[in-house]
Design a binder for these strands. Structure first.
Lengths: 216, 216
DNA sequence: TCGCAAACTAGAACAGATTCTAATGAGTGT
DNA sequence: ACACTCATTAGAATCTGTTCTAGTTTGCGA
């Protein structure tokens, strides 16, 4: 009965990636003060737990407890575990984006700038393998609309085609950046399965990027 | 406690993709007669159920019931639902491979032959969307060693580089074919999420293949 | 200040995957 | 035929995600 979640709808336009807004869609919306805190506590608790034992350690009961909210409330904010995972991933992506802003890739070619970004993201995720595993897998499984691929694609376009946005880009450019993102995601998965080393990923990403982004 | 499955080990070398062999690893191994039947019945039951309502319809109790074995037995053959899904996917891949053998792609360039194969696989999966969804997602999630990507990579190498096998191929060739397989898997996922049409996938696969396999 | 609607809480209830138990069956070596 | 080992079975039990219920709290408008 995943369909009967008429509980609370998400606002039409999000200021953030995927937001599970716990307020009536229409009018007032003021209770947002403590709710932001609550949401934050929840996501933090979830991330902390996932950093330890992965998704299995991130049990809804435990998250709720650790965030100091009732289970029902947790489900009001995040209608399913996936939604919660998506939110955690959103935070991670925010981190990556701000890291990119802070220190933009400086390599000469679009391909090497893209590689730079992807490997930086890879290192970031490797630091918390359990978290990374939990996040990537769950994301891929998610019913939820996950802006993950799109955000990564946009990021790649931005750094490789010098500030190009998803809106301005041509179809082929989007396809190419998207394909590179796909390759990266799969490689990450293989790494988490223990079937790839960092170096192998780097080589593969470089090879793919060189061809996919040669004339972007 | 996924780790405490000292129940029954898999044989060192598989004649088939991923085999969950329900017999003692060592010596005799004769009980294999009815066990093959049993395994077959289980996989068939699972596939049939998944063709209907997807993974959720493929409930372990139901599979066991439909295959005429006890739940415990099902778990002896397939220690987790994922393992069962992997087995079902193996069958599907067998189907694809024999289809390729029967009618090999005849296009002129390596890239277009690869596209041919991938789109044929796509159409095959689209015919049973529930099954496809169940299979792909579960596969990606699986802890299980899944030969899926590798098998698809090998298949692509074979058709694009004219009979090249995974063993003979150079590292870069494997990387490139593997990357194309990654792109395909992700596109398939997007399609199953309703975010891609068949035509979009085809365009994207063509674009990626043209670049990745240009000189394979 | 009063009263309402929505949010929150504690905890029970439910569902499906996985594990465990006790008993039975089947194949093998003697 | 007998004893032994391992496979199988039915079913209970456990674990975790998700839903539901009843009661309490909170913020706001009248």
């Amino acid at each position: 009965m995943r369909s009967t979640q008429a509980t609370i709808a998400a606002p039409p336009s999000d200021s953030e990636g995927t937001m599970e807004n716990p307020s009536a869609p229409g009018g007032h919306s003021v209770r947002t003060r403590s709710q932001h805190q609550r949401r934050k506590r929840i996501v933090q608790a979830a991330a902390a737990l996932a950093s330890r034992g992965g998704v299995e350690a991130m049990q809804m009961r435990t998250v709720a407890e650790r965030a100091g909210v009732a289970l029902g409330t947790l489900y009001r904010y995040f209608p399913s575990k996936m939604d919660l995972v998506v939110a955690v991933v959103g935070e991670e992506l925010d981190l990556l984006e701000s890291s990119i802003e802070r220190r933009p890739p400086s390599a000469a070619t679009p391909a090497s700038r893209a590689v730079d970004v992807l490997m930086r993201a890879t290192r970031g995720l490797m630091r918390e393998p359990e978290l990374a595993d939990a996040l990537i897998r769950s994301l891929i499984m998610a019913e939820v609309q996950t802006p993950f691929g799109d955000r990564m694609t946009g990021l790649l376009l931005r750094v490789s085609a010098d500030g190009l946005t998803l809106e301005e880009a041509g179809e082929e450019q989007i396809d190419l950046a998207g394909s590179l993102a796909s390759v990266w995601v799969q490689e990450l998965l293989e790494m988490l399965r223990g079937r790839r080393t960092y170096d192998q990923i780097q080589r593969r990403i470089e090879t793919a990027a060189a061809r996919l982004l040669s004339d972007i």
